[in-house]
């Protein structure tokens, strides 16, 4: 069992857990992820390692409540434990010779972007970053990103904070102004990574993306996470999840992510029903206490 040491609500439906996982913390590197399972019968889901502390033995994950498992996870509190927490998985990213890097994070993608930029910053690399969200209240990790960036741009789709518009607009501007980078890292929903990679392509700047296909084991034994990169089949869990964004077939990735759409709906509805039942029971329980 793995204990949740700390829980924070970062934004509506986005939560952060600090987990007690000393072995994972000891080996974790930027770019890696864990697979967790809440309990017996639960699904194995991957989450990026958003931060880690080898000395304290802790690993931080940030997740957005999108379906049954992430919502159930969101109901847990500090002090609760989950059944399985496996990692660190995936290939760590490394940038040995870079001098200047641009990080672009959209929505939840800011969390997986952070450890990479933090490492670059600690290596003395000049870091420029662009982060964005739908609205101001959905923006996460702004302070953390500020701390590791030499320059930070903030955008919101509705203009409630920072620049009005998508992160890709700022990305385009910087490139058009002739600013150069050794590498651009773009992490966010697949559509953002796809558009972002198209923007950087004409400039020939290496562009790293981090892919999120559906996974089961995370160790290379099922092939469910396969993605096409440069016309070759790659297993995102062991060959990635970071890949050359100019070579990824994003359309295929987006299609494959929809494989279980019907089942995900069934799962979520059942979860809501059982939760609403529990809530009404609690309310009823409270009522009967009041009567007494």
């Amino acid at each position: 069992m793995f204990k949740i040491l700390e829980k924070k609500n970062l934004a509506p439906s986005i939560k952060l857990f600090v987990m007690d996982a000393p072995l994972v913390a000891k080996k974790a590197r930027p770019g890696q992820f864990v697979i967790l399972r809440i309990k017996e019968g639960g699904e194995r889901i991957p989450l990026t390692i958003a931060d880690y502390d080898a000395e304290k033995g802790t690993v931080t994950v940030v997740f957005q409540e999108v379906g049954k498992t992430t919502r159930e996870l969101g109901t847990l509190k500090a002090g609760d434990s989950i059944q399985d927490f496996v990692g660190p998985l995936g290939v760590p990213v490394e940038f040995p010779h870079h001098k200047k890097v641009l990080g672009v994070g959209g929505g939840l993608g800011v969390a997986p972007l952070y450890p990479k930029l933090k490492m670059l910053h600690e290596q003395g690399v000049e870091v420029v970053s662009i982060i964005g969200a739908k609205t101001a209240e959905m923006l996460i990790f702004e302070d953390e990103m500020k701390a590791v960036s030499d320059r930070l741009y903030v955008c919101t789709d509705d203009g409630s904070k920072g620049r009005h518009g998508f992160v890709t607009v700022v990305l385009k501007e910087l490139l058009e102004q002739g600013e150069n980078f050794d590498e651009i890292i773009i992490i966010g929903p697949p559509i953002l990574m796809k558009i972002g990679a198209e923007i950087t392509r004409p400039y020939g700047i290496p562009t790293m993306v981090s892919l999120n296909p559906i996974m089961v084991d995370g160790t290379g034994m099922c092939g469910g996470c396969r993605v096409s990169v440069g016309g070759e089949i790659k297993f995102a869990c062991v060959d990635g999840p970071a890949f050359d964004g100019h070579k990824v077939d994003f359309d295929e990735l987006m299609k494959r992510l929809a494989t279980y759409r019907d089942e995900e709906k069934i799962s979520l509805e059942r979860f809501h029903e059982s939760h609403e039942c529990k809530l009404t029971e609690q309310i009823k329980g409270a009522d009967s206490d009041a009567v007494k």
Binding site: G41, E43, R44, V216, M221, E263, I266, S267
Partner: peptide, 22 residues
């Protein structure tokens, strides 16, 4: 076959939606 059988045997997809893996 690995994914197909793992989903069914290890993750118990035959009991979906009692269990969570489809």
């Amino acid at each position: 076959a690995n994914e197909f059988l793992t989903r069914i045997n290890l993750m118990k997809a035959y009991s979906f939606p009692e269990t969570d893996t489809p």
